[in-house]
Amino acid sequence: MEFWIELVVSVFLVVGAVFVLIGSLGLAKLPDFYTRLHGPTKATTLGMGCLLAASVILVTYQQGYLSLHELLITLFLLITAPVTAHMLAKTAMHHNLEILDKTSNKALTKRARDRINP
């Protein structure tokens, strides 16, 4: 295998895995639910994008034809991640989960919960 393809694939794999780890690290260490929501929705999505890009490059090189079907998973995750985050935030608000004390505009959750204007 050519050196530079191996290099690009390896870099994509490691960077993607690091982003996946950062997303889970955010899930494990951040203090309240709403801040925890940020890690998995953003970092994990980009991490998966990197891993799947590595897979696209490697399979295209190995098989000799353009293989794009991993893109389907990337697109699917990109579309569903915000929907999941929105539904989880909605659920958390309806459950009155405790919010970090230093959060500003905490009163807005009550307005948002009843879907009325601020």
Binding site: P82, V83, H86, A112
Partner: peptide, 15 residues
């Protein structure tokens, strides 16, 4: 969806 994915924000609810 864009706001959820981009600048450090997550959209939580709409009035």
């Amino acid at each position: 969806s864009t706001v959820s994915l981009t600048p450090g924000t997550v959209s939580a609810e709409i009035s």
